[in-house]
Structure formats: C-alpha cells, structure tokens
Amino acid sequence: MFPSDASLIARVIQDDDRHAFAQLVRRHQSQVRSVLRRLTCGNQALSDDLAQETFIRAYRGIKTYRGGGKFSSWLYRIAYNVFLTERTHNQREAVDSEPLTTLDGGRFQDKTTLRHDLMKAMKHLTEQERAAIALAYGAEATHEEIAVVLECPLGTAKSHIARGKEKLKNHLRAWANAE
C-alpha cells in the first residue's frame, strides 16, 4: 500500500526525509510537467526547468502547506507562479502566424502533428485561459481547483475555460472535420 500524500509531507516536515519527498515528486511530476508543457506551448526544455523549480520551491515552502486543499492544487499554484515569474523575466513569445500543419496532401497527419498544432494554437490564448485549459485537461483539475490555483472566482475560472476553448476551436477548425 502506498503512503498518502499527507504522511509523506509529514515525514518531509518532521525529518527532512528526502526519500519521502522523492516519492511525492515521482507521484506528481507527470501532471505538473504536463500543465507546464501546455503553459509554455509545448516547450519541453523550459517546462521541465520550471517543473524542477516548482518542486524546489515546494520543498522549501512545504511547512506552509496547510493541508486544507489537495497537495496537487498547491503544487499547481506554485507551478503557475513559477511560470508567471519566468514570463515577466523573459519576453513574451511571439504569436506564430504560420498556418497550421494539419493537412498533408488531403490526409491528416499523426498525433505529433496534432500536438504541434494544438500547442501552436495555445499561443493565441491569454495566460489565464491557457492555465485554465492546461489544468482542466493536463491535470484533470475541477473548476473549483482551477479557481483556487488562478486565485479567481469560480465563474471567472469557467469563463477562462470557455473562452480558451472557443479560441482553440477557431484555430483548430480544420481538425474538426478530420477523419
């Protein structure tokens, strides 16, 4: 039986148990990296650097985790802050005006192309919309969790998702009719 997040966190706080923290990292790394990959529009190197920074900040501040909400939500909040900090220190990425690569001689290409087009379309979203979509689909977070992570009312979180999806639909319309 796997130990719960709460027991692992307690071991990290009380004994500075690195083994317990490693278990927490292994348990949550995929979703945190997935969210950050969407936030960075598919930049794997950058998203992994930000994910590493997220877990280091989580380790340093683990005593401030109150246990009121899910540990994963707390991690996503840190990840989002790390992403925003990185954005303020670096220039905003240019929105790619290049057409999507959806069609290849009338046939749709593989999942790699789909992912490429999806990430390209994500660049047209605002940071909040992108974060809301990333959390909803990359981390399967609930609307309530998204509202907590983005520190906004529930209705606003839902609006971010709806607006983000509408923009993605417009940019990925060609995929809608794909076989």
Partner: peptide, 15 residues
C-alpha cells in the same frame, strides 16, 4: 483532442 494530448510523462530521471 485535448484529452488525447494528455499522456503520462515518464519520470526519466526528473525526480
């Protein structure tokens, strides 16, 4: 499409 893109990312030495 969004769900299809959501795949488990292997640790690969990340931890």
């Amino acid at each position: 499409m969004l769900r299809d893109d959501d795949q488990y990312i292997q640790d690969g030495g990340f931890a």
